[in-house]
Every structure is written in C-alpha cells, then in structure tokens.
Amino acid sequence: MPVIVNLDVMLARRKVRSKELAEAIGITESNLSLLKSGKVKGVRFSTLAAICRYLDCQPGDILAYDASDDDLRAASED
C-alpha cells in the first residue's frame, strides 16, 4: 500500500523528538513509531489533526501517495 508517511522528515524539520510528539498528542511512542514506519492500518483524523497542530503543518506534509492500480483491488477486498 504505497501511502508514504513522511512524519520523520517533518519531525526533523521542526526539530521535535518522537517522544515529545507522542506525549503532546496522547499516543504511545510505540504507536508513533509504527506510524512513522507506515506499519499501521490507519490513522484517526483526530490523531492526524493533533500532529498537524503540534508540528504546524498540513496532512499533505506528512502523508504522500504513489499511484498504483493494485489499490483499486485492495479497496474492494477490505
């Protein structure tokens, strides 16, 4: 699933540590680590909003997408 999570890039730009962001938005460090590596099934809008508010960015700064025809089939299988 080629949704790319660029959270580590934004953390580096804002010079914010993972631990600090996790505490600020109320998720565990391990969940944040999973999110950074793109190993989560999904992200709640509330979590995304909290990240964007803390890092002063837009969702598009954190998430990117590589087009793939496989994603059309994946949506119908879910």
Partner: peptide, 8 residues
C-alpha cells in the same frame, strides 16, 4: 474492534 485497534 481488533481492526480498529490497529488504527492510531
């Protein structure tokens, strides 16, 4: 619920 638990 398990599926949702995978959402952060």
């Amino acid at each position: 619920e398990r599926d949702l638990a995978d959402f952060v």
